[in-house]
């Protein structure tokens, strides 16, 4: 950790970057920190409690400006950064990635390929929480699943924290803001809420890297991250992807194969 602070302070001091986005101690758990100088870099921490997906900030021009910036990245954050690279939302000459590996060594990455070689070693596994809820859902009949989600949806008040926390929801105009005509009703109600979530999930096909930021952000505790999580797991074999490992070969929905599955087409 000391190495990370030193390195962050050094690259800020010598002008390599003008901003380091990392973590600091928060009131209950670590939280994002923006370092503009060596002094604030002293507050940096990086450990297993750091869970925010800082990739969400990297596409915000008002924060990162036009210069080069650095970010301390967890494995989840790295996966998102890879996907942002795939979607041409980040450029390799603007970003410097710092991370600390399992042996405590400070690692630095710049390119997609460097990140990929590192992330490859980590299999994307369901967390205990994800496993518990998904097993429950998978054991349900369709009617039970419907009731489960209707109950959950009835709590959604459409704050869109799920969207705001998602590093891949970087659209300047989101589909919920399309209002000529109003495509998805903006008021909270079970069907309008479900339409919103199905829509978001559809926009995540082949893109979601299962970081769980959306579910974590939801103030009313809806496990929405599991909708995209399940979809991602289902789709990866269909489309020949490894879950959570973005590849530069075109997004699932912008490409196709002649022999895509079609048993359900009559």
């Amino acid at each position: 950790m000391e190495k990370l602070r030193e390195r962050a302070a050094a690259i800020l001091a010598d002008g390599t970057v003008s901003l380091v986005i990392g973590y600091e101690e928060g009131t209950k758990r670590p939280r994002p920190l923006f370092c503009h100088d060596g002094e604030s870099a002293r507050k940096l921490i990086f450990d297993s409690r750091c869970f925010h997906n800082l990739a969400v900030y990297l596409t915000k021009k008002e924060l990162v400006g036009n210069g080069r910036f650095a970010v301390t990245a967890t494995i989840s954050t790295l996966r998102s950064i890879m996907q942002l690279y795939v979607e041409n939302q980040l450029s390799e000459d603007k970003l410097l990635i710092l991370t600390v590996d399992l042996s405590g060594t400070l690692r630095e990455f710049v390119t997609f390929d460097e990140i990929s070689a590192y992330v490859e070693q980590f299999e994307l596994k369901r967390s205990e929480r994800e496993q518990a809820i998904l097993t429950r859902i998978e054991g349900m009949t369709r009617e039970e699943r419907w009731n489960f989600w209707q109950e959950e949806m009835s709590h959604c008040f459409k704050c869109y924290a799920c969207r705001s926390a998602c590093p891949l929801c970087y659209c300047t105009k989101c589909v919920v803001e399309v209002n000529r005509p109003q495509w998805i009703n903006p008021w909270p109600a079970p069907v309008a809420n479900m339409e919103w979530h199905i829509n978001r999930a559809m926009h995540m096909v082949g893109r979601c890297t299962a970081c769980g930021a959306c579910g974590d952000a939801c103030p009313v505790g809806i496990p929405i991250d599991l909708i995209t999580r399940k979809m991602m797991e289902d789709m990866a074999p269909e489309f020949g992807y490894i879950p959570g490992l973005p590849v530069k070969k075109g997004n699932a929905l912008s490409t196709w194969k002649l022999d895509d599955r079609e048993q359900f087409i009559r």
Binding site: I137, M140, R142, E143, E144, R145, W146, N147, F148, W149, Q150, M194, H197, I198, A201, M202, V205, G206, I227, K230, M231, D234, M235, E238, F239, A252, L253, S254, T255, W256, K257, L258, D260, R261, E262, F264, I265, R266
Partner: peptide, 29 residues
């Protein structure tokens, strides 16, 4: 239609997860 087919595959999976009755949507050529 190839793009559409991919979208339907994903859509069906999401609908099924949400408990929407996918038997009520019939795809065909």
């Amino acid at each position: 239609n190839f793009h559409a087919r991919r979208r339907w595959i994903a859509f069906r999976s999401i609908l099924d997860m949400m408990g929407v009755d996918v038997r009520r949507v019939q795809y065909s050529w």
